[in-house]
Computed example of a mutant assay.
Amino acid sequence: MKDKTIDYVLRTTWLAVNKMYNEEAAKFDSTMATGFTLLSIDPEKGTPSTSLGPKMGMEATSLSRILKTMETRGLIERKPNPEDGRGVLIHLTDFGREKRAYSREKVLTFNDAIKKHIPLEKLQSFYEVAEVINELISNKKIYNQKDNILK
């Protein structure tokens, strides 16, 4: 680990996870992005399209492309939001629920495998470190900010 920066470790680990999920999803003519989207949609009530992007940490343009593909493949359907006439709810179709269950199974398998190889205390530390990194970034405490911690 010597000489590796924190961002390098985060990036290479995420790329490995992303590749693993995409290889698994490809076996079923899908992608990791589709699986993540399926898991982010409330299977009972649907999810407002406007809250899906922020929930997933994605830009609206990227999400629009994914949703259009998912709709074309029959995984989701868009319905008017009864609470907001201008809004749209994204609902899973029966096929979408089936693919969501598959995606959930793959995520749980990954989590179980990691938990078998890493002690709980180390995992807890990992979560704590990730939370601090996210807080520093979201509170803009790293670059050119009033409360810059690098000063």
Rank of each mutant, 00 (worst) to 15 (best):
L10Q: 03
I76D: 00
F95N: 15
K55F: 06
W14M: 12
R65M: 05
R97I: 00
I66E: 01
F28N: 08
V107C: 13
A60E: 09
T5V: 01
I142Q: 07
D84P: 07
L108W: 08
N134D: 12
T72Q: 01
N139E: 12
P48G: 03
I133D: 01
P48N: 13
L108N: 13
L75E: 02
I6G: 06
F95H: 11
F110Q: 02
T109L: 12
N144I: 10
L108I: 14
Y102M: 10
K19Y: 09
Y102W: 14
V132Y: 14
K55G: 09
L150M: 03
K68Y: 11
T109I: 11
I66C: 00
G53V: 05
E77S: 11
T109M: 15
I133A: 04
P43T: 03
T50Y: 02
L15A: 14
T47S: 07
D84F: 13
F126W: 11
N139T: 06
D94Y: 10
P80A: 06
A25G: 03
S62M: 14
N134W: 09
L67F: 00
R100G: 02
G35N: 05
P82E: 05
L123R: 04
F110P: 03
K106W: 09
V9W: 14
R100A: 05
L38D: 02
K99T: 04
D84T: 04
T109E: 14
N81A: 09
L75V: 00
G53P: 04
